[in-house]
Design a protein around this nucleic acid. Structure first.
Lengths: 336, 336
DNA sequence: TTGTACGCGTTATCAT
DNA sequence: ATGATAACGCGTACAA
């Protein structure tokens, strides 16, 4: 079994340097290139990545950091799909992927990522308004792309959607169908997605001259928070609930049902994400589609652009969202 | 910025070898150890992993391979939770994690994993009865643990649950509550989970003397397959449906509802997995709880045992499952 | 207990 | 176009 570039050189009758050039695309005569390539294929030689990394300073591996509250991470399919989008694109870019989830403190995760020393760049989920992990990565010399963004990330590269606009459009839709007591179960406070969706909700309500101060309940992007939040809001006689995401809406639906109320007859319901199950709820859920896989893929591409031309300007990508209207806001009444 | 062990040695007034011993736990006098450790902490020195890997032959990184059909991967939370279980445990074991998903052919994935050369061992999901990727990993000299197992894996180490037993218990439960036309929507054929659950289903039916040949429909672990499968089965006048997983059951529930039938009044329904949403369906879903995170964690532990004593006997772990009975099989009737 | 010296497999620089 | 040769940063026999 041929393990090293030296054996390969001996077999080919050329120097180690030439073999390296053949493998890495240096200038070599066609004849020798073909000969060496033949032997490489024949022997099934695989370059040692550790040695390569040590010598070149590049590993061809990208780090993905998803330090997320365990109550959120992988409770629904959101983060999985984000991961899948990244992975797909990274494979196309011929890059490996290391993954860090939020098992310890953010400081510890940061330390692990930085000390690993074997990633050429990092994609990090930046959902929180303040995040020492994100700050630490941005402060490091590692090319970094955020999924999500904060207002003060002036020099950071990121991929995100316009949460304010999307939330505004859902709320406006609820207004258009004639609802006036439109409630909102928020996402986990402190996250940009939650805060920005609140802003969009309030903006639409204010524009329509509708009050909303007593119609907001804090949730945490989870079904249980949707169930308890809806219980409170129904007592306050709302006629529509905009939930910060689909999982929250699923929880809310549960409570609405338990009270024997009709959707959308008594209460219209909307979510955010358009995960698979949204279309399969009863009734199918009106929601905002954000291409989660696309965001992952775009983050990978952005990172590679960043690594290609270092100290270039930060790259900021805002991907489009789409309001998907289903029967939870218009159409047949539940339990006819 | 102190970057190398040499600078550290110079600062500490000892040789590089001594610093290395301090870091890696060799025998060093307490006094020098303390002095060096102090300087390490002070300078924030981080060992270069590539160099360390090259010199020692170990990287401290574990590979996780989830080469799964895109129609399955991350459609629900199953694989995410598996990943989370592995990650949690690997962090405790002070190991890094590289991740490969199924973006290309299995042969290409195998090639990438093996040629990366920077993982000390691999955890691979082995859901299919025949899988060249799994075979290739087992044939390699890389310590490998399967999540899932095949009957012919005599020398492989794996972590799995007893699908036959679990399926038998669900089916038996449906029989106990008086159902006789108990149908089964299978998982994706060719996967061990699907096939073994079929075996368990048939076993329980046969034991009760109930026919089942016309009551099995192939699904693929997805909600759409549950919806279409249920449509066929309802036409065949079943009074219960055991679905190969919760997502399938969710799809089936959709069809049952659309027909205006009551659960469990007209049709009892059961799933498998006990993902979060199972308890929040209407009615809450009877299902089999398998600790998905636990399986991931156990796989990580098993891999480390395997790496610790090489060429030891294969380690096989079967984790327990639990039948979780909810209102989709007993209790209140839907739409009273 | 500590230090010396070599090797790990590759890339990259400098001659030729 | 090709070949020596010096890094790259660390672990580890071996010697002291």
């Amino acid at each position: 079994m041929v393990r090293t570039i030296d054996e390969l050189a001996r077999l080919s009758g050329v120097s180690r340097a030439t073999v390296s050039r053949v493998i890495n695309g240096g200038s070599v005569s066609d004849k020798t290139r073909r000969r060496v390539e033949h032997i490489v294929a024949e022997t099934g030689y695989r370059p040692n990545l550790a040695a390569r990394t040590l010598a070149s300073g590049r590993s061809g591996v990208v780090g993905v950091v998803m330090h997320v509250d365990p109550h959120l991470l992988f409770r629904d399919a959101y983060f999985g799909q984000l991961l899948q989008g990244m992975s797909d694109e990274l494979v196309d870019l011929a890059a490996g992927m290391m993954l860090w989830l939020g098992n310890r403190t953010k400081e510890q995760t940061l330390d692990k990522v930085l000390s690993s020393g074997l990633v050429d760049g990092v994609i990090v989920t930046a959902h929180y308004r303040d995040d020492p992990l994100v700050d630490g990565l941005l402060a490091s010399d590692l090319p970094t792309v955020l999924v999500g963004h904060r207002r003060h990330d002036r020099t950071a590269s990121y991929v995100d959607v316009d949460h304010v606009h999307a939330a505004d459009s859902v709320t406006s839709h609820l207004i258009q169908i004639g609802r006036t007591r439109i409630a909102h179960i928020t996402g986990m406070r402190g996250t940009v997605a939650a805060e920005d969706r609140i802003v969009g909700y309030r903006r639409a309500m204010a524009r329509a001259g509708l009050p909303c101060d007593d119609l907001m309940i804090d949730g945490d992007f989870n079904a249980p928070s949707g169930a308890t939040g809806a219980a409170v809001l129904l007592d306050r006689h709302c006629d529509a609930i905009f939930c910060a995401n689909d999982s929250t809406a699923m929880g809310a639906l549960e409570t609405i049902r338990a009270r024997g109320l009709a959707v959308p007859g008594d209460v219209a319901l909307a979510g955010f994400d358009d995960l698979d199950f949204a279309a399969r709820l009863d009734p199918p859920l009106t929601t905002v589609r954000q291409g989660v896989r696309d965001q992952g893929a775009e983050a990978a591409r952005t990172l590679f652009q960043l690594m290609a031309d270092r100290d270039g300007t930060p790259r900021r990508v805002i991907l489009p969202t789409e309001l998907v209207i289903r029967q939870s806001t218009v159409g047949g009444v539940l339990r006819p």
